[in-house]
Simulated scan of single mutants.
Amino acid sequence: MATGTELRQGSPAKRAAIVRAALEVFVREGYARASVDAIAATAGVSKRTIYDYYGDKEQLFLATVRETVEQQTAAFERLLDDTVGTAEDLEGALVAFGRAFATEVARSPQRSALLRLMIAEAAHFPQLLERGGATGGTQRALADRLADLAARGLLDVADPMEAAEFLGVLVTGRVHNHSWYGTVMLDDAEIERLATGGVEVFLKAYRPR
């Protein structure tokens, strides 16, 4: 087993395959039951490669969560760029964002799997909750965008992080509840209704008067 000073960065493609396989196995089996052998077989790599890249199962688990969260945050930032952009039509932009994000939340097996995994293992790995856990990066990205909209006079936002948390909950909270965290498929009309309603409530609170 490799020590911390001997870990290799290795091939990006191989690391991505290991992370995908590890997430699949950890979600299916839980941390305690998951084996490095099963992860290696699923990824199509040797067990030695996993040890060379990550050291041990615990570090692999934490790296899998961290790297998956980073990927999801980067995708969320692209979604913000595509939907909110310069936001000349504030309500239309936020509805487009809410609909797209709610659809991703409702229909992304990876996002739902990661959230269920972190909830299941947080008691054993409190570091999973550092910096906001699975949603910390997306909340900060959304807060930055809301702060920009406030600076342009389109929103009245005293605390961007709080406003981002409210918008996130309003857009995704009922989607999580109605879909049982990605277990039940929601149709487009239901997602549209839930997301639009959330944005309407948000704007009632944060639109300048």
Rank of each mutant, 00 (worst) to 15 (best):
G92H: 03
P126L: 10
T196C: 02
A151I: 07
D89K: 06
E29V: 06
A151D: 14
L155I: 08
A43H: 01
L60V: 05
G30H: 07
R174I: 05
R111Y: 15
V84N: 00
A102I: 03
R207M: 07
E6T: 11
S108H: 07
Y54T: 05
M118R: 09
D159E: 15
H178I: 08
R174V: 09
G136R: 04
V84Q: 01
M185G: 00
Y53G: 04
L203F: 04
G137W: 04
L170I: 06
A43K: 02
D159I: 09
V157Q: 06
A32F: 10
E6R: 10
D81K: 09
A113D: 14
E58H: 10
R174S: 13
A134T: 13
T73D: 15
Q127D: 12
E6A: 12
T3K: 13
V157F: 01
A113H: 06
V65D: 10
V95M: 03
A113T: 11
E104I: 05
R152T: 04
A122M: 12
L117Q: 03
S179P: 01
W180P: 00
V65F: 08
E104C: 06
S35C: 08
E165H: 11
A87N: 02
A38I: 01
L94S: 03
A74W: 02
D37R: 15
F166C: 09
G136N: 06
E162K: 12
G153P: 01
A87S: 10
S11M: 05
E58L: 09
S46W: 05
L142I: 04
M161K: 12
G168C: 05
H176M: 12
T196G: 07
F202C: 02
L90Q: 09
A32C: 03
L155H: 03
Y206W: 07
R20P: 00
